[in-house]
Write a protein that binds this DNA or RNA. Structure first.
Length: 201
DNA sequence: CATGGGATTGACT
DNA sequence: GTCAATCCCATGC
């Protein structure tokens, strides 16, 4: 399957975040369907680009369709897709995947960092979080700035006819701009990270 | 150069 | 529910 092209990413970040649900992240032998995303934009303080152009945010302000990778809490690597025009700092955080290929390798990678192998037995525990999925796929900081449209980390389109029902909710794990409903989840998918979004009643 | 705060996870009470 | 691990990098002196 052909990777999504740059014009897919060169749109308002909220649209891209929603449209990425159902698309597939591929790297090496591993792959997973995106089931959870969050949008970040330079206009709001939770976004790294809010502080302007620095060495850290260079990728964020670059061309759309690149991977923005950074280290969180010094332990985890988080994968984002850069969006909008160059000069605009915006990206979609990929928060969770439904594993579809390379599960054996994912289990080995995830098990390495754990004292207990119990949790990695479940497929739904392999990529149910932004730090987990990069570890499961083996994506490291060295991929920062790489091109998602032509590079080793690829994102391919949602299979037509398989578009999931999407839930919108406030972003999680942040302390600023916590009110913005910029989190998108595939409704009812068990691979979504906790806390699960409140379903509409 | 020193300091402090995370877009998290997993272990433990 | 609480809490620590661990490091990048923005900020300030």
């Amino acid at each position: 399957m052909k990777a999504l092209a740059a014009d897919f990413y060169e749109r308002p970040v909220l649209e891209v975040a929603r449209d990425l649900i159902g698309c597939v992240v591929e790297y090496g032998d591993g792959a997973g369907v995106i089931v959870e995303t969050e949008a970040y934009h330079q206009s709001e303080p939770a976004c790294h680009a809010f502080v302007g152009l620095t060495p850290r945010t260079r990728t964020l302000f670059g061309p759309a369709g690149r991977a923005y990778l950074y280290s969180s809490y010094g332990i985890h690597v988080l994968l984002n897709a850069v969006c909008e025009r160059p000069g605009i700092g915006a990206a979609v955080l990929i928060r969770a995947l439904e594993p579809v290929a390379g599960l054996t390798t994912m289990r080995i990678r995830r098990q390495r960092a754990r004292s207990s192998p119990v949790q990695v037995a479940r497929a739904t525990e392999l990529c149910s979080g932004p730090g987990k999925l990069t570890q499961a796929l083996g994506i490291g900081l060295e991929m920062n700035g790489s091109d998602l449209t032509t590079g080793a980390v690829r994102i391919t389109p949602c299979r037509s006819g398989c578009e999931p029902v999407i839930l919108t909710a406030p972003r999680i794990g942040i302390t600023k701009a916590i009110d913005l409903p910029w989190r998108f989840c595939a409704a009812g998918n068990p691979n979504v990270s906790k806390p699960w979004p409140q379903p509409p009643r």
